[in-house]
């Protein structure tokens, strides 16, 4: 039953993912890719559970290394996306000021 329930969640999320990205201007492709990449850092939740749930020394080590890498992905991903978008906003404003 659990498997079926998780499968439903998967199916709905996939359809939602397809629907969300439909008409995106090409200037937003890279920031969107980067923002989505930061979301995939959600694996940090799994890493925290592996590192902290006392599954033995080996799993704790694997989990801790995973926390490290996932954290790089999350923090770096969101910051880089923000930097890209802030540059983008400036570019958008300047022509308006000129006209």
């Amino acid at each position: 039953m659990d498997m079926v329930y998780l499968g439903f969640i998967l199916m709905l999320s996939v359809f939602l993912g397809f629907e969300l990205i439909s008409k995106v201007p090409s200037t937003l492709h890279t920031p969107l890719m980067s923002g989505a990449n930061a979301i995939s850092g959600i694996t940090i939740v799994g890493a925290i559970l592996a590192a902290g749930a006392d599954l033995g020394p080996w799993a704790t080590w694997l989990g801790a290394i995973a926390v490290f890498f996932a954290m790089v992905n999350v923090v770096g991903g969101y910051m880089v996306t923000d930097r890209m978008l802030s540059m983008f906003k400036k570019k958008d404003n300047s022509p308006k000021e000129k006209s």
Binding site: L6, L16, F18, A36, I39, S40, G46
Partner: peptide, 19 residues
């Protein structure tokens, strides 16, 4: 067995393919 990983992962997976 973690739902948030499944939802967020599938979202990125699908959105990434479309993108």
């Amino acid at each position: 067995n973690n739902t948030i990983l499944i939802v967020a992962g599938a979202l990125v997976g699908a959105a990434g393919i479309i993108l």
